[in-house]
Write a protein that binds this DNA or RNA. Structure first.
Lengths: 73, 73
DNA sequence: TGGCCTATAATTAGGAC
DNA sequence: AGTCCTAATTATAGGCC
């Protein structure tokens, strides 16, 4: 994707590239979730527990904040 | 987006258009979640409880299936 | 490592049927 | 309401610093 070729749905073996991809896509996902919630007045939440080989960035998110109680109560 | 103008982050007031947008974006989100999980070997899940004014389509999803236990146990 | 840049791929709103 | 089409926007891999 981006500059070269299409997405191949397969684990990215290189640790560094996998981490970069993880951070970029996580940001994109957060935006999409927020958009779905607001545009469609939906209750949406998502959880990311970890990225393999990257203990530094366990993550958690739900959007928007007012839905948090509903989802994770 | 698409044919006319940019995304405005605001509730779509028209019921029919909101429902269409909901279904399209939900499908897109499922794909993105699946991709994040596989590409980055991450544990990801998301929940959609409802779309306002569309009781027909409460939805639930987590990807991939092997992560379900981890996330919603 | 982390932020910008940008060439491409991917998503999607609206239309047609 | 569902499916296909496609223009136009948006997301993002790889580069660069």
């Amino acid at each position: 994707m981006g500059r070269r070729g299409r997405v191949v749905l397969r684990r990215i073996e290189d640790r560094v590239r996998r981490g970069i991809c993880f951070r970029k896509r996580l940001a994109g996902l957060e935006k999409k979730v927020e958009e779905l919630a607001v545009l469609c007045d939906a209750h949406v939440g998502f959880v990311v527990l970890s990225c393999s080989g990257d203990d530094a960035n366990p993550h958690h998110f739900a959007a928007p904040a007012t839905h948090l109680e509903l989802l994770f109560h």
